[in-house]
């Protein structure tokens, strides 16, 4: 009972600190940029394949490939990394809470926040995009959900492993994901957004979305890509818990 109280306190405390952190400002900028883009496009009330394709490509290539990882890394790395950089993590580590639970509390605080921001923004963009948005909303929703989960878990792993996790996660999100995700061959499977794009292109194709050249993109089947994202999420989280449970944080005091 006391452990549950400690865990729930830490979750609420972490959520409150994340909400009022610099990370919130950091993610509002790209989300607002996307909102402005959608508003300026003036999507019509009637379905047009051209507009659907444009909106889908915006969601897949800009929102899912750039904004979603930015949101996930802003909060994912800040949840533990913020305490580490502020040197307040020591106050948590000397409490009678297992380290695994500390990390899970941080994760529990971060995930709904990032999910809410990503999926809420996506819902808003779809609402503003008229008929093409209404069609796109259920199509890309599952992929965005799994991608967000995978990124949040992955960036928690960054946070517990690296001292300057935010910088490294930014480098990873902006360069590794974009570069590796675009190269032909098996290497692209190291990028989270490759699996997300596989699901999204497959979902959008029946509604008129043209997938990239399959010889270059080599998409995975939807089920395989979904399980890959779930696997990345679980694997990263378990690894993060193991690292956090065993690691000495010498730089805390």
């Amino acid at each position: 009972m006391s452990l549950l109280r400690a865990w729930s306190t830490l979750t609420v405390l972490s959520l409150r600190r994340l909400l009022f952190s610099a990370s919130s400002m950091m993610v509002l900028l790209p989300l607002a940029g996307c909102l402005l883009y959608v508003l300026r496009r003036h999507y019509g009330d009637d379905y047009s394949q051209r507009e659907f394709r444009q909106f889908s490509e915006f969601i897949i290539l800009v929102f899912a490939s750039f904004v979603v990882p930015i949101c996930a890394l802003a909060f994912g790395t800040a949840s533990v990394g913020g305490d580490r950089e502020d040197r307040t993590l020591v106050f948590l580590l000397v409490r009678p809470i297992p380290r695994a639970l500390i990390l899970l509390a941080k994760f529990t605080a971060t995930l709904p926040l990032v999910m809410g921001l990503v999926l809420g923004s996506y819902w808003l963009y779809c609402r503003l995009a008229g008929e093409v948005g209404a069609i796109a909303l259920p199509l890309y929703f599952p992929a965005l959900l799994w991608m967000t989960l995978a990124y949040v878990c992955l960036f928690h792993l960054f946070a517990v492993t690296f001292r300057h996790s935010t910088v490294l996660a930014l480098v990873y999100a902006l360069f590794i994901e974009v570069l590796i995700g675009a190269v032909p061959g098996i290497v692209k499977r190291a990028a989270v957004n490759y699996y997300g794009r596989s699901i999204m292109y497959a979902a959008g194709e029946p509604a008129g979305l043209e997938p990239p050249d399959p010889r270059l993109f080599e998409p995975l089947p939807v089920d395989t890509a979904t399980w890959a994202l779930i696997g990345i999420a679980i694997g990263s989280l378990v690894l993060a818990i193991l690292v956090f449970s065993r690691r000495e944080y010498r730089d805390l005091t």
Binding site: S2, A6, T9, R95, I97
Partner: peptide, 10 residues
């Protein structure tokens, strides 16, 4: 107070 709660107190 937060630290007390993290120690499991009601």
């Amino acid at each position: 107070y937060a630290m007390a709660r993290l120690n499991g107190f009601s």
